[in-house]
Structure formats: structure tokens, C-alpha cells
């Protein structure tokens, strides 16, 4: 599970507890480096969002509103990977103000796809631009939000399942605990009665990936690429043995694992 601060299962979450006496919690939405896909997913639950708007006051969301950034908010929803020094400062500013921080989407939770540039940022920038524009600022290796500030809740996935965000917002509001995210996906495929990709001679990252999405990609004939990040219980060495046991290439497995976990693996996880 991503995050420096992980609440135990039977511990009351003090962060969200602080919201208890508020009438309508003020929610601010921030974007770091991303494709805005998770924010687009948030606009895709407009009806549900309108229903819960009475419980929240959306005070800042630049994608859909010109309302300026306020000094005061209770819940910060953060999308995107940390890619510049400016992002680091923004996150610190947010953490000083927000009672609850929710990281949404693979980019924010594991470093996601932007994390593929990790270790090569300067070289990549030179190849893309020649002369790197001054506006690029102080670029840094992409990192998840939890590398910089404490994160209270995560909504993993690329993109997020937006109703999962609604559930997490409710937990934040009611003082619930975050999901532990321990299981990997294989149990979901069993429940779905899908034929395992390994049985079909193909690598699937569901073996080590945090469950909770219901394995829709597998149902659609597409092996898991691990967008929800590693499950807390993931045992990579044992997974590599399984890959080799099926006569598949462990190097391919490791390359695929990078797609969403390169930044996470390099920093907080090992």
C-alpha cells in the first residue's frame, strides 16, 4: 500500500475525524502531472456528484470552474505525479491546510506512467526538445504524492473508478479508515470464472496487483498491466518463479511491471 502514513485497520483515522462537526466539508481538487483522465472520470459521475454536492462544497476545481484557489479547505483531492520542485512546494502548501489528503489515480498513487521517465528525465528532455525550454522549470524524477507528504486515502487505478472515489470521500467525511489494499487480483478472476492468462501462455500482472477493480480488463481479454499498483501482499520473487514456471520470460514480467510501478519501486518500496 502506498503512503508513508498508513492507518491500521482498527485505528480511528484522526485526519477524517477532524471533519466530523463540519456542516459541508470544503473540497479542493489539484492536478500535478497527468492526462487529467481521473478528473475527467470525476466529471463522468456528474449525477452522483450532484447528489453528494450537498455533503461537500467544491471550493476549487480548475478543470470545471474559474473559482480562485482559496486559503481554506478541508479535503484535498490530488491527481498526477510529482515531477517538478514546484509540485513539491504545492504539495507542502496543500498539506499545511488540508485535514484530509486523497491521492487519486496511478500517477499520484504510484508515480504511474510518468514514472517511466524515472532516472532518465534529463536525457529524455534533451531528446524531446533539443534546447529544453526554460518553462520546464526544475524537473525532478517523477514520484508518487506519498513520497512528499502524508496521504490519508488513495484511490488507485488508471483511470480511477469514479464511484470508488465517492466511497472514499464518504469514508473521509464519516471518519472511516482507508482500505488496506492487501489482496492481489487473482481472487477476483476466480470469482469472475475467467480463464487465467498464464494458462493461456501470457503474462498477467494481476498476480501482484492491488485488487478492488473487479478485473474488468481480464474480462475484456486484456491481461492486467498493474494500474492499481502492487498489493500489500505482493511477493515479487514468488511471482517471478510462477512466471518462469509457465515457461514465460521473467524479463518481460519485470518490464511490464515498470509501466505503473517504476517510480514506486525505486523509491519507497525497496
Amino acid at each position: 500500500m502506498a503512503g508513508k502514513k498508513v492507518f491500521g485497520l482498527n485505528q480511528i483515522n484522526p485526519a477524517s475525524h477532524a471533519l466530523e462537526h463540519k456542516e459541508a466539508a470544503k473540497v479542493a481538487v489539484f492536478g500535478l502531472a497527468s492526462d487529467f483522465g481521473c478528473q475527467v472520470q470525476m466529471t463522468n459521475i456528474e449525477r452522483e456528484l450532484l447528489d453528494v454536492l450537498g455533503m461537500f462544497e467544491l471550493v476549487y476545481w480548475q478543470l470545471v470552474s474559474s473559482a480562485p484557489l482559496p486559503e481554506d479547505f478541508d479535503i484535498a483531492i490530488i491527481e498526477g505525479a510529482v515531477c517538478t520542485q514546484e509540485h513539491v512546494e504545492t504539495l507542502q502548501w496543500i498539506r499545511e491546510r488540508a485535514k484530509v489528503v486523497i491521492a487519486i489515480g496511478a500517477c499520484a498513487v504510484t508515480g504511474g506512467i510518468p514514472g517511466l521517465a524515472r532516472g532518465n528525465v534529463d536525457d529524455f528532455a534533451k531528446r524531446v526538445y533539443g534546447d529544453v525550454p526554460a518553462s520546464c522549470g526544475s524537473m525532478a524524477s517523477p514520484r508518487p504524492v506519498s513520497d512528499i507528504i502524508a496521504v490519508d486515502f488513495t484511490v488507485p487505478g488508471c483511470p480511477i473508478e469514479p464511484l470508488e472515489l465517492v466511497a472514499v470521500l464518504q469514508r473521509a467525511l464519516m471518519g472511516g479508515n482507508p482500505e488496506a489494499g492487501g489482496r492481489s487480483m487473482c481472487g477476483d478472476c476466480r470469482l469472475n470464472e475467467d480463464v487465467c492468462f498464464f494458462e493461456r501462455g501470457r503474462i498477467c500482472l494481476g498476480l501482484v496487483t492491488r485488487a478492488g477493480c473487479g478485473a474488468p480488463c481480464i474480462k475484456l481479454g486484456y491481461p492486467c498491466n498493474g494500474c492499481r499498483g502492487l498489493a500489500a501482499s505482493a511477493n515479487l520473487d514468488s511471482a517471478r518463479d510462477i512466471v518462469a514456471g509457465y515457461g514465460l520470460d521473467v524479463a518481460d514480467f519485470d518490464a511490464r511491471l515498470q509501466i505503473f510501478n517504476k517510480a514506486g519501486q525505486d523509491s519507497s518500496r525497496s
Binding site: C83, P114, A117, F124, A125, R127, V128, S135, C136
Partner: peptide, 19 residues
């Protein structure tokens, strides 16, 4: 335009075309 440099053209270099 201050959207952070994302560099997708470089991120796919060396990877399998199936990805």
C-alpha cells in the same frame, strides 16, 4: 504552457510495440 514535460515519445522507446 507550464504543464510538466511528459516525454511519452521517449518513454515508449525500447519497449515492446504491443505496449
Amino acid at each position: 504552457i507550464t504543464e510538466p514535460a511528459r516525454m511519452f515519445e521517449q518513454m515508449v522507446r525500447g519497449r515492446s510495440c504491443t505496449e
